[in-house]
């Protein structure tokens, strides 16, 4: 009997390793792609805010404080960049300010009836939903990736090849609300 099965097992092991490694890389790329999506959606909200402020300002002269707070929160969110926990906190604060403005705008009859405001409201609602869903997808991807690199056999590869665990995009407890906005 020849020892033909030794190279056979080695090849099998190599194939298995390659398959595992590719799976880890795919999971990490999914996390990165999901983060890019969140970033796109956050930017989209950021771009919507000046328009919202402009169209609301004319009707709400006595409420000028909220506009300053919104613009300040927007600046803070932009400054946080790709630092995930800081960004999450800043974006949550911005989201709260926007919700506050919408609540105030609801109380102004002529504003509630105006077409631009309805359109803007829908835009903001969908943006908030998109952020929430993108976050959900991101967190699911992070969970999948972290589980893979922390369990056998992924953890055997994670160390030598430098797969570090990713952090969740967590929302502070006070800002937790349903992703669904209905009118």
């Amino acid at each position: 009997m020849s020892a033909w099965w030794i190279p056979g097992i080695v090849v099998l092991l190599l194939v298995l390793l390659a398959w595992l490694y590719n799976g880890l890389v795919a999971a990490r790329n999914r996390v990165r792609n999901a983060w890019a999506q969140i970033d796109v959606q956050l930017l989209r909200r950021s771009d919507l805010i000046p328009g919202l402020v402009e169209s609301a300002k004319g009707y709400m002269k006595h409420e000028s404080g909220i506009f300053d707070r919104i613009l300040e929160a927007r600046r803070a969110a932009t400054a946080a960049g790709a630092d995930i926990p800081a960004r999450a906190a800043a974006e949550a604060a911005l989201g709260r300010q926007v919700q506050g403005l919408l609540a105030l705008a609801e109380a102004v009859p002529e504003l509630r009836a105006s077409d631009t405001m309805t359109a803007l409201q829908e835009e903001l609602a969908t943006t908030e939903n998109r952020i929430a869903f993108a976050r959900q997808f991101f967190n699911d991807a992070v969970q999948d990736y972290n589980t893979r690199i922390q369990t056998v056999p992924g953890n055997l590869l994670a160390g030598p090849f430098g797969f570090a665990p990713e952090r969740f995009f967590e929302v502070p407890a006070e800002a937790r609300a349903k992703p669904v906005v209905s009118f």
Binding site: E122, E123, A125, T126, N129, R130, A134, Q136, F137
Partner: peptide
């Protein structure tokens, strides 16, 4: 249209 864009984000 917006809803579809939202949900496709949720489903990736």
């Amino acid at each position: 249209g917006n809803i579809l864009a939202e949900l496709s984000l949720a489903a990736g």
